[in-house]
Amino acid sequence: MTTRRIDVLDVLRGVAIMGTLGTNIWIFTSPAGPEGLLDALGRTGTVETFLRFLANGKFLALLTLLFGVGLELQYRSAARRGAPWPGWYLWRAGLLFLEGLIHYVLIFEFDVLMGYALTSIIVAYLIGRSDRAVRAWMITVGSVFAVLVGLVTLALAYGRAGMAPPAAAPSTLFSEGSYLDQVAARIELVGVYRIEAVFIVPMGIVLFLLGSRLMRAGVFEESGRGAALRRKLMVIGFGVGAPLNLLTSFAGETWFLVDRYLLPPLVALGLLALVTTLVHRMAGAPGLLRRGLTNVGRTALSCYVFQNLAAAALCYGWGLGLAAEFDELRPWWVVAAWAGVCALFMALSTLWLRRFERGPLELVWQWAYTAPQSHLRTNDKVMDNSIKR
């Protein structure tokens, strides 16, 4: 890939990471934390509903597409080196799952890394197959996924129409509970909090494969077929996906799954095309915003994990406890909290990359990935020398 296209991917990753915080910040700033997520959907005002619409699911889908692009790059690298595939990529997936598990237990209930790890193992065996086979997988899995979302949505509508659940006392775990109390709750309620994987994995299979194929189709090329493809994606994303997604955002909590998993991927295609086009059209040295997004993209794993930790420390009772203190100032203080955390990590990632090539978690992760290979190569050399003797 050219340096220009690598820059585009870094900016896109930065946008996706900051955008996922735009969804998660509504969870952190709720006094009830994750436990108040679904209850809040039915009683938010017009302004908050619109602000949630801007981020909900769209940047998760964009990040998922970019994971597919990354998987395509890994596949190409292995092919160039003549290395077996998926080979050591499965070890990468295992490390990603471990990273996600630690992130889930210690920091955040709705970690996506574990789901991405499982998805990447499946897609690793599909990515090198023919375009016809990949299309068949995408259509089949996508259709099953859409039916699943539709059936659950109908069940939610029928259940809410048939009976009103009794009002529950608001939870104080996240406004007053200790850090260890929250860790214990994540372990105890793992089946509840990890149910999202039922939706993340099939959606991920489709979007991983789509990201791979979009790259092969030249979506990141500056002109020619890349520009034409991006125009089509923007029509799909902003002309079709965004208006429908806006309707479901205001349709109530019954449409939560459609609003988060089914329509946002369409909008994400438009976002991918728009950001890529804007970066290609920028001339001269990058400005402050673009540099910040690029550096967040280069340290994406670290920023994803640590921005959630920072938001938890800002909002939860074991930290500054601002979620309960500023609840009356919603939704505007939520926007300010998101912007502040984003600015913080743009600055921190920039300062870190002045001294190091990778982010802190990326350095640990790279060591964990390469150490076993180095050990095996050393053992092979020792065995070769022994045989020669």
Rank of each mutant, 00 (worst) to 15 (best):
A146H: 03
L118A: 12
P170V: 06
L180V: 11
R160M: 15
A167N: 09
L118F: 15
V141R: 03
L113V: 13
V152T: 10
M215S: 11
F174A: 11
A117F: 10
L173S: 13
Y104Q: 09
I139M: 14
A117R: 07
V123G: 11
T140S: 12
Y116F: 15
V198Y: 02
E109M: 00
I200R: 11
G191Y: 00
L210V: 07
P170W: 08
A146E: 07
Y125F: 15
V112A: 14
M138P: 02
G177M: 01
V134I: 15
V123T: 14
Y193Q: 12
F208Q: 04
R213T: 04
L189D: 14
V134H: 00
V219S: 04
A167C: 01
I195M: 13
I139N: 00
L95W: 11
E196L: 10
L180K: 02
A155N: 11
A168L: 15
A185I: 05
R92Y: 10
G204I: 03
T153K: 11
F220L: 15
G177E: 04
Y193S: 06
V190C: 02
V147F: 06
I121H: 03
L156D: 07
W88N: 14
I205F: 05
V141A: 11
S120G: 12
W137N: 04
R213S: 05
L101W: 11
V141G: 09
A124P: 00
F208R: 01
P165Y: 13
I205P: 03
G218P: 04
V123K: 03
